[in-house]
């Protein structure tokens, strides 16, 4: 099932399906690219940033960025 990265639940894992074109280079340096496996670690309240695990490292992303990354969630 596909959903936005910002809509993933805690502990949920998924694979990056697509990233909005203008965002691609911006998040690539943080290790987030199409095909990468992600795990949701934390979502901060009040529309704060989210924290995901990529390659064993934690990365935080603004919610507005997470809204524009589509993830194929593992069942």
């Amino acid at each position: 099932m596909e959903k936005k990265l910002s809509e993933m639940n805690y502990e949920e894992e998924g694979r990056v399906g697509s990233i909005k074109q203008d965002l691609k280079n911006k998040v690539a340096g943080m290790g987030i690219r199409v095909g990468k496996n992600l795990k949701m670690i934390t979502k901060h309240p009040l529309r704060g940033p989210i924290v995901v695990e990529v390659d064993g490292a934690h990365t935080s992303l603004a919610l507005s960025i997470a809204d524009r990354i589509i993830v194929e969630v593992k069942k």
């Binding site: 690539a28 340096g29 290790g31 390659d55 064993g56 490292a57």
Partner: peptide, 11 residues
């Protein structure tokens, strides 16, 4: 950071 090598390699 050797424990997060991929991002470092990118830069």
């Amino acid at each position: 950071d050797a424990s997060k090598i991929e991002r470092g390699l990118y830069l």
